[in-house]
Computed example of a mutant assay.
Amino acid sequence: MSSSRKGCGGGLYIWKGQQYRGAAAVAEAAGVNARTVLYHLDRHGDLSRLGIGSGGHNQKPGRRGRQVSLCGRRWNSIQAMAHDLGISSKAAHRYIRAGNVDGLIRALMAKQVGGVPA
C-alpha cells in the first residue's frame, strides 16, 4: 500500500503558517493524533480549526473558571475548590448543579478536621 494514496495524509499541509509533510507531522506539531488531522480535513476542508479544542480546553491565557465561595472561603474555580476539598471535579459540579450545598459543606468540614469526605 502506498503512502501517497488519497486519504492517507502523505501530502503537504499548512497549519498556522508552517508547512508540514504528512498528517503525522502536523499531528505532532498540534499535539493530536494523525486521525484528528485527517478528520479536520474531511469535515472542514482545511486545518483552521485544528488545535482549538472542544469546550474550552484551550482557554485564552488569564481566563479562569467560575469563582465559587463556600462558608466564607473563596476559590478561583470549581476545580480548585474540588481539589482543595479532596473531591473530584465531577462531584463538585454535580453538587453545584443539584444545589446540594450540604454535600460541599460536608466535604469542607471533613477537610478541616482532617477526615475523608463522606
Results as ranks from 00 to 15, higher is better:
I96A: 01
D46I: 04
I52W: 04
L41Q: 13
A118L: 13
Q112L: 15
A24E: 03
S54L: 15
A82L: 05
G114D: 07
H83S: 13
R66A: 15
R35L: 09
H83F: 08
R97C: 10
G114L: 03
S3H: 07
N100R: 10
S54N: 14
Q112K: 15
L38H: 06
R21Q: 15
W75I: 00
Q67A: 14
R106H: 07
Q19M: 07
K90F: 08
A91L: 13
E28F: 04
Y95N: 01
G7A: 11
G7V: 04
V101T: 11
A24H: 04
A34N: 05
E28Q: 12
L104C: 01
I105M: 08
S88Y: 05
Q18N: 15
M109L: 07
P61I: 10
H40L: 04
R97A: 14
G86I: 12
C71D: 11
L85N: 00
G86K: 11
R64S: 08
S89L: 06
G51V: 08
I14K: 11
A29L: 07
S48N: 07
E28C: 06
G51C: 04
G65L: 07
S69C: 10
R63E: 10
R73W: 10
Q59V: 12
S88C: 03
A24L: 06
L47E: 02
P117C: 14
G56R: 09
Y13N: 01
P61V: 09
K90R: 11
W15K: 03
R94Q: 15
A34Y: 07
Y95S: 01
H83K: 12
V68K: 00
M1K: 09
H44C: 08
V101I: 14
R5T: 02
S89R: 12
L50Q: 00
G7N: 10
R94C: 14
G11N: 09
V113M: 09
W75G: 00
R66Y: 07
E28G: 08
M109R: 13
W15T: 02
I78P: 01
G11H: 12
S69E: 15
R21L: 11
N58V: 06
A23S: 14
A107N: 00
I96P: 00
R106Q: 13
N33T: 13
